[in-house]
Design a protein around this nucleic acid. Sequence first.
DNA 1: GTCCAGGTCC
DNA 2: GGACCTGGAC
Length: 351
Amino acid sequence: MNRQQVTKLRQSLLDWYDVQGRELPWRIRPEDRAVGVIANPYPIWLSEIMCQQTRIQTVIPYHAKFIARWPDVQALAAASQDEVYGQWAGLGYYARARNLHNCARQIAAAGQFPDHEQGWLDLPGIGPYTAAAMMAILYDVPTNVVDGNVERVMARLFAVQNPLPGAKPELRKLAHSLITDQRSGDYAQAIMDLGALVCTPKSPKCGTCPWMKSCAAHEKGNPGQFPLRTAKPPRPERFGMVFVLQNENQILLQKRPEKGLLGGMSQVPGTPWNDRIWTVAEAHAFAPCAGDWQKMGEIRHVFTHFSLNVQVMHLQVGDRLNPSDGWWAQIDRLGQAALPSLYKKVLGLCL
DNA sequence: GTCCAGGTCC
DNA sequence: GGACCTGGAC
C-alpha cells in the first residue's frame, strides 16, 4: 500500500471515528484534541491498565470508583495495598492491581508521568501495547498501538493466512505500515473502536465499515473466518473443597500468596486443587477445625488454563476459635474483603 | 451450560 | 510459551 492509499484509509477511519467513536469517561474527544486540549495522564493510565484483558463496560464502574476514591496518582500511591486490592476485587488478573499500585508509587516518586515510550515500558504492568497507547493518546505521538482489536482488523484487511498466535509479528508489521503522523491519538483509538464496534470477532458489521472497500477478507466473502488460529489444547478439570466456617455474623478468611493464581487476594480455607475429586476424609486435614461440616453444593469456575470444581462445606460454630492462619471477617463488610469472584460464588451458597 | 476475548510477566 | 480471571455471547 502506498503513502497516498494509507492517507486515504486513515482519513476514512478518522471520519468514521469523529461520528461513531465511543464516548468514554476518560477519553479526550476529537474536537477537544483539535483545539489543543492535553489529557490528564492519570485517568487515561488507569483506564488502560483496567482495560487490559477486560471489557470496557466492566471497567467503567471500577474506573469511576477508583477516581472518586483516589483523585490523583499521589493519592493512589499513598493508599494501602489492602484498600487497592479490595477495590480491584472482581476485576480479575490480580497481578494488575499489584503492578498498578507499584506503578503509582514509582510515578509519584518521580513526580511526573513518563513523556517517552521507553519511560512507560520501564514501569510495572506496562507492556508494548500500553506504552504505545499512552504516547499516542496523551501526546499524539505516532506509535504503533497494537491490541487484539488491531490484530483482528489487520488480519481481515490483509486476509492474513498465517494463524495466531504465530502471526503476531506479521500483524504488527502490517499495523505499522499504516502509521503516519496524521492524528495519531485519535487514530489509535479509532482503530480499536472499529475492532470493538464494527470489525467484531463474530459476524462483523461490514456494511457500516469505512474500510469495507479496501478489506481483503470482505472481498473474499469470509471476514468472520479471520484471524485464523491454531487449535487450542483442551482445558483440564481440577477439583477442590472449601470450608466456610461461620461464627454468628463472621466467617474465617485467609490471604493467598502474593504471586500466582488470585495472588494477594483473600480466600476461604480449603484443599489444594487436584486432578480428581476430594473425599471428606482426604480433605478434612485442610479444614480450619473438626466438626459436622455440611455440604452446601458445588461451584464451577473457569480459569484461563483449567476449569475448577469446588465442593462447598459449611459449619456454624458457637465459640470463636483463634485461627492459626487467617482472620474473622464481618459478613456485612465482605464488599471490602478483596474476594475474587470464585469465593463470592462460594459464599453465595452459604450466606 | 460452553466458548471466547483480551496484554504482561516470567 | 505458559500463567493469569471474568462475564458476555451463543
